[in-house]
Design a protein around this nucleic acid. Structure first.
Lengths: 204, 204
DNA sequence: AGATTTAGATACCGATCGGTGCAGAAAGAG
DNA sequence: CTCTTTCTGCACCGATCGGTATCTAAATCT
């Protein structure tokens, strides 16, 4: 008897939709409406599949949201990871805010940031998603802090610079940009704000 | 027949609860949970009254929210109006951000800003509240802009200063502070951020 | 007192929420 | 072809949503 056979095509009728595409659509709905604001009807109709197929493919609403958040991180929000790779602290900060402006105001996409939407107010049912987003933002802040610590170690930033403060300052401005974007601020307006925030970099 | 009689005590059984106090409690619930996240059950149990009394006294959930927002403006958010009365632009900006930090991180009160909570993500039922909050923030931004225009006219700010940019910059930082506060940032951390944001004031 | 008006409590309304059960169709393996 | 498995579509579940009807009790007027 062969316990360890090579994995052939999965048995039974194969999935009739593109799971990646469906997840992309779900991400857009969450981005626009938040976790609680996006109903299963909203989600599945945007994904083009039925409730049953969604549950079979993604588990439930919460895991769907987590997968959508992952996709967001690797998709629209990759600007953050790329900014961290810039050669010095000033370029990191500049790229981070420019990416934030770009992503929160790109035409044809929801305004604002998925990581901020729906993470402020929440009823009982949205508490887990709120916590996940708070953790997501904190993770980003910590990565920035490490990067700036590295910059201090390398002599790129002055030795009395405060990596924690610099990271929080940048995150605060980026979060504010996301709020402004939902309120209808234009890309050029927000880029001016980002430029202003960096005019005294580092703000010691 | 007396059409215009002096208004005596209102007929019938007088109200058995303090409407002001009830509104205060409702404001706190909206502040913490947002418009959609706050259910009628949450609200009325916090207010200590029944659904019927709430509808009789405040109309419906939407008008209750609007009145709670008014109360917030005149209560926890008066720092904004007071900041506008400062004698010069730098003091306006400093007081505005300091008030923002204070209000969003005061112990015993919900973290964050009622004007930002629940205004980012919204399902269909929360759209009107979302619009009301966007308008509320825009109103604050416009008041700041007018104040800075006045500062330019008076020579308090340089003639090439951009009141629109300055107002939007301040609002962006304040909104970001509100997001950070919900994420658990402490008062002193956020005050450091506010100080950093003002280190190059005005950011021309 | 008697009339009037509202407070308060309870039960209820239709609609929608996230999540399932079921039946039939469809695609693979043999 | 048959058998097995998973697909899809639809009806349905209990719970909760915002909002209301009903009834009794209480308070202030004439």
């Amino acid at each position: 008897m062969e316990i360890e056979t090579t994995r052939r095509a999965p048995l039974g009728r194969p999935r009739g939709f593109d799971a990646d595409e469906a997840l992309e659509r779900a991400m857009m709905v969450f981005w626009e409406q938040g976790y609680e604001g996006a109903s299963l009807t909203d989600l599945t109709s945007a994904m083009g599949i039925t409730r049953k197929s969604m549950y079979a493919a993604f588990g439930n609403k919460e895991t769907l949201f987590r997968k959508a958040l992952e996709r967001y991180t690797e998709g629209p929000a990759t600007y953050a990871a790329r900014a961290l790779e810039k050669p010095n602290a000033r370029e990191v900060a500049t790229a981070f805010l420019a990416g934030s402006v770009n992503t929160t105001t790109r035409p044809g996409r929801p305004a604002g940031c998925l990581g901020v939407q729906g993470s402020l107010a929440a009823g009982d049912s949205g508490r887990v998603a709120q916590d996940a987003l708070i953790a997501w933002r904190e993770d980003g802040r910590i990565r920035l802090r490490h990067r700036f610590q590295q910059a201090v170690d390398e002599g790129d930033l002055p030795s009395d610079a405060d990596p924690d403060l610099l990271a929080r300052y940048l995150m605060t401005v980026a979060n504010g940009i996301a709020v402004q974007a939902v309120g209808g601020a234009s890309r050029s307006e927000l880029q001016q704000v980002a430029d202003a925030a960096l005019r005294n970099w580092p703000p010691l």
